[in-house]
């Protein structure tokens, strides 16, 4: 699966849950939303090779 976050890209060949993906990238689930093939998904969802995954940061402000 291809994963994009803040203009960076990663590729993972094995299935992962959303929760596992966020742990690998050291992201707290409270700070992001995960979009799989255009749809928001919860942390328990399984991501498969071939999925297009976009992680959206939700923290804003200064």
């Amino acid at each position: 699966m291809n994963v994009t976050f803040r203009q960076k890209q990663w590729t993972f060949d094995s299935p992962l849950t959303v929760s596992q993906l966020l742990k690998k990238l050291r992201l707290l689930p409270e700070t992001v939303l995960v979009v799989r093939n255009g749809q928001l998904v919860t942390e328990d969802q399984h991501l498969q090779p071939g999925d297009d995954v976009r992680i959206v940061a939700v923290v804003s402000g200064g």
Binding site: E30, T31, V32, L33, V35, L40, V56, V58, V59
Partner: peptide, 12 residues
């Protein structure tokens, strides 16, 4: 609303 909720609303 948590920031994550407003972001989710905007995306949806």
């Amino acid at each position: 609303f948590y920031e994550r909720e407003t972001a989710a609303y905007t995306l949806i």
